[in-house]
């Protein structure tokens, strides 16, 4: 029975995460339009909300161009490798507390991996690089290859930062489990300020936020697909549904990373009244996550793109020392 519940939760979360993707795309277009004195999509459905579905349909019916002289098997494998990690990361993100029960079964999260937790998130996100690297290589296109090279270097560098920046949170919570990390944020500071890690770990939060931008290939770190330099980077040669898969992976990653940041630094499902009505937790979690997604879109409307060497220098010479200092301070504070 336990497995059935687990499977049911997985199916529901999977459906919700992939189902929310068209709406994130729509939201991005609307928010960008607002920031740029435009209207944005407004023809398909009310407020153009069905635009993404129309686009998806269009993409599926487009001709699927497969260039000659490529490594076909890998060319087909790459988009799949890129979308699977994006979809399965959400399995450990708790969107509701352990008190959230349906028919006596906890439904606040798909799985709570006690000793792995956040490591699972990292393990899965590192796999996302494969899709990009292989796509770039298999396309047999110089721009694709350059995009792939850039992105592998970028993602490996920023993964280190992702890992280091949360060490403070992990040390403070004393656990790798995402559920326990959220629970550790329940006690308010001085009895009034919410006990979320954002306030105790501002530096860690900042580094994690920036590194997630890089990990999700978002502006100002969208170099792997910098259209002004590399045409479309690693997915230059992809069309039709294979392109759609890369596109979906990108937006689902955005959502997942927002969810992870919410969990680690913003108190996840916590909020006023959540003890009595656990269902409110889902609402709090969604609101925080959506706010972060909005923030990422806002950045995209505002910032230009960094140059490759500037990006790497920033990671290794600025962010890495800052992350290490953050760990030292936290360790000292905990050991005190």
């Amino acid at each position: 029975m336990e497995y059935v519940v687990m499977a049911a939760k997985a199916v529901v979360v999977f459906a919700l995460v992939s189902g929310s993707m068209p709406f994130i795309v729509w939201a991005e277009r609307k928010v960008m339009a607002d920031a740029q004195a435009r209207i944005g999509p407004n023809r398909v459905g009310p407020f153009g909300i069905l635009q993404s579905f129309a686009d998806a349909l269009k993409l599926i019916f487009k001709e699927d161009v497969v260039p000659t002289g490529i490594d076909k098997r890998i060319f087909y494998l790459a988009p799949i490798l890129s979308i699977i990690p994006a979809l399965i990361t959400f399995a450990v993100v708790p969107y509701g507390g352990p008190d959230l029960k349906l028919f006596g079964y906890p439904v606040g999260y798909v799985a709570d991996l006690k000793d792995v937790g956040i490591l699972y998130v990292f393990a899965v996100t590192t796999l996302g690089v494969y899709g990009i690297v292989l796509a770039g290589w298999a396309s047999n296109n110089k721009y694709s290859l350059m995009g792939a090279l850039r992105s592998s270097a970028q993602m490996i560098s920023y993964e280190i930062l992702l890992g280091l920046s949360i060490m403070g949170v992990v040390i403070g919570s004393g656990s790798l489990s995402l559920v326990e990390i959220v629970q550790a944020q329940a006690t308010p500071y001085f009895g009034v300020i919410p006990g979320i890690w954002l306030f105790a770990q501002p530096l860690g939060f900042l580094i994690f936020l920036i590194a997630s931008l890089a990990e999700a290939n978002r502006v100002p770190f969208d170099l792997p697909e910098a259209e002004s330099e590399l045409v479309a980077g690693f997915h230059t040669e992809y069309s039709s549904f294979k392109f759609a898969m890369f596109f979906m992976a990108e937006y689902i990653n955005l959502l997942t990373l927002s969810g992870v940041i919410t969990t680690l630094f913003l108190g996840g499902w916590l909020g006023p009244g959540v003890d009595r009505f656990p269902i409110l937790g889902v609402l709090y979690f969604s609101v925080k996550t959506v706010a972060l997604v909005y923030f990422f879109i806002w950045l995209r409307a505002t910032l230009p793109r960094l140059r490759y060497d500037q990006l790497m220098r920033f990671a290794w010479k600025v962010m890495l020392p800052a992350a290490l200092i953050n760990i030292f301070i936290t360790a000292y504070w905990v050991a005190r």
């Binding site: 991996l113 000793d115 792995v116 490591l119 699972y120 990292f122 393990a123 590192t126 796999l127 690089v129 494969y130 690297v133 292989l134 770039g136 290589w137 290859l145 792939a148 090279l149 592998s152 270097a153 490996i156 993964e159």
Partner: peptide, 26 residues
């Protein structure tokens, strides 16, 4: 040993093999 499993994936498949691929592709 789930911790080791996660580390195995992060270190070997996530970092080392990507660098392997990086070199092989060039």
């Amino acid at each position: 040993a789930p911790f080791l499993a996660a580390v195995q994936i992060i270190v070997y498949t996530g970092a080392i093999m990507i660098l392997f691929l990086f070199v092989v592709m060039l």
